[in-house]
Nucleic acid binder design. Sequence first.
DNA 1: AGCGTAATAAGCAAATTTGACTAAGGCGTG
DNA 2: CACGCCTTAGTCAAATTTGCTTATTACGCT
Lengths: 203, 203
Amino acid sequence: MMILGLVRWMQPVHGYDVRRELLSWSADKWANVQPGSIYHALRKLTDEGLLRAVSTEQVGARPARTTYEVTAKGVDEFESLLRAQWWQLHEVPDPFVAAFSFLPAMPRDEAAAALRNRANLIRAGIESMRASLESDWVRNSKPVHVGWMFELWLARAEADMAWCGRIAERIESGVSYLPASIEQAAEWSEWKGRAAARDNNAK
Amino acid sequence: MMILGLVRWMQPVHGYDVRRELLSWSADKWANVQPGSIYHALRKLTDEGLLRAVSTEQVGARPARTTYEVTAKGVDEFESLLRAQWWQLHEVPDPFVAAFSFLPAMPRDEAAAALRNRANLIRAGIESMRASLESDWVRNSKPVHVGWMFELWLARAEADMAWCGRIAERIESGVSYLPASIEQAAEWSEWKGRAAARDNNAK
DNA sequence: AGCGTAATAAGCAAATTTGACTAAGGCGTG
DNA sequence: CACGCCTTAGTCAAATTTGCTTATTACGCT
């Protein structure tokens, strides 16, 4: 719950403010927060005594907005949550890795093409990110650690891109997917058959 | 839903088989699947007509186990799901990045220490991964693309580790977090105050 | 032979997340 | 000035995920 952190930073705030801030950081991508979850989180945190509802204003006949503040307990909880992320390593689930584990289900040429495509998408991302890193806007108006986050993103993206290229080459080189011992051969043979069939259709 | 892919690969299977396979790949880490979700997913996929329940056996008085198979529709759906992951780039949410965005809330020395610690944890992971990559067990009994997945993991981990080191140095060097233009200074001043207070307590 | 532990197979309630939906107010514009 | 369209603020049901629980049977050990 890094919503807590945001409330702490922006307090006092109402839900819609939090939502806009999250969207402006496009945090729906790298955090785990879609707009819909915010209000639930705010209420839950209030029930747990980490937040305090400060006031409820109403402008015209629009939905009333409730403003929140962090309690002392909330600050403590936030600090401990924060430290959990700083000091511990949490593997992040990556759907691409999951999909890659089904490599034998893809025709060879499609797999290689998809990896090259992926490398290009990543390259495009890298270039636009590098551009904004060097733009005056980020350099002058954002705290420097925002740039550092961009650097992390860049480093990971470059590693990914290089890997895609290497693997695409190996797939194109036609090496067998089978392990050195041939026992497993039978397990994958059905898929190999299907993939081969598609290879033939494609040509 | 890569459960579908597993069922396709292992069919016919019952839930517990899928669960064991997932755990043996420790897929609860890199996929988004805890054991509890499997049975729900199987039932949902069956309702949608992607799977078909084949039989229900019972051994002794233990819970009856239901065996599933993939339907033609299920195969189609799986292929399209698979391609969505191969051809498109999906940013993955990383809680560490979220936590790092709150850097100004951490005392400088703790932030640097945590990053160095993180680098060490990653280094340990890299070493054990490199060991299993070179072990005969993986080289001989697993399809080669499993090794390739390890390589991706290694490449990312090395990028992360290097970044942690660089950033720890910068934090220790005492550079200001503030952007070049001083306007924003006020916004962060409260946190700076707190962090500085803790810096003083620590010494 | 008895006892504790692990494996077998799933179920379920509760927590979380998602995505779509409301409904009024303001603003530009033809 | 009437019209669409965007912004404001938040709700809600449905989908998903999680973690815990149940209740046999098999196995190892003394």
